[in-house]
Amino acid sequence: MKGRSIRALQARLTLLMVEEDGMSTVEYAIGTIAAAAFGAILYTVVTGDSIVTALTNIISRALNTNV
């Protein structure tokens, strides 16, 4: 009886160590944080003066009708 309960406990502990329940939640959380960080960096770059100036110049040249 004692040996069987020890084996059952070992089997249960092995299952607990192997189970991956909740891993997808952690993966989604890390992906969400990474996406938010990338978005913040992209926003900072796009709203910087050099990018705004470059886009303004491109649009001005495209709209310039002097041939």
Rank of each mutant, 00 (worst) to 15 (best):
K2Q: 12
T53Q: 12
L16Y: 09
R12A: 15
L16W: 09
M17K: 15
E19P: 00
M17Q: 15
T65E: 11
V67A: 12
N57L: 13
A8C: 04
S5Q: 11
S50E: 03
N66H: 06
V46K: 01
G3M: 11
E27D: 10
V18K: 14
A54W: 11
L63Q: 13
I59T: 13
S5H: 10
Y28F: 07
A34N: 10
V46M: 00
L55F: 12
F38T: 04
T32V: 03
T47G: 02
E19T: 15
Q10M: 13
D49A: 12
I30P: 00
V45G: 00
Q10L: 15
M1N: 07
T56A: 15
R4C: 05
F38M: 04
L16N: 10
A8Q: 09
V52G: 02
R7I: 10
E19I: 11
R12S: 13
D49Y: 06
V46S: 00
N66M: 04
V26M: 08
E19S: 15
G3H: 09
L55P: 01
G31D: 13
F38I: 07
R61P: 00
G3Q: 14
I51D: 02
V67P: 07
T32I: 05
V67N: 12
I58N: 07
G3D: 14
A29N: 07
E20H: 04
Y43W: 03
T44Y: 03
T53R: 14
I51N: 03
L55R: 05
A35L: 11
K2V: 10
I33R: 10
V67Q: 13
N66G: 00
S50P: 02
Q10P: 00
I33N: 04
G48S: 15
L13R: 15
V18S: 13
N57D: 14
T56W: 04
V67C: 06
I59W: 07
A62F: 14
R61Q: 13
Y43F: 07
T32D: 11
V46W: 01
N64L: 08
T56Q: 12
I59R: 14
E20F: 00
T56D: 12
T14P: 01
V26P: 01
R7F: 09
V52Y: 00
S24E: 14
V18A: 14
I51Q: 01
V46Y: 02
G22I: 06
G48V: 02
R61L: 11
E27R: 15
A29I: 09
R61G: 02
L42S: 05
V18F: 06
I51R: 01
V45W: 02
A11K: 13
A35V: 01
T25K: 14
L55Y: 05
S5F: 11
R12F: 10
A35W: 02
Y28V: 12
T53D: 15
T65N: 10
A37Y: 03
S60F: 06
A34L: 13
Q10V: 08
N66F: 06
L9S: 13
V26Y: 05
L63C: 08
K2E: 14
Y28M: 12
G3F: 08
M17W: 06
K2H: 10
F38D: 03
I58C: 08
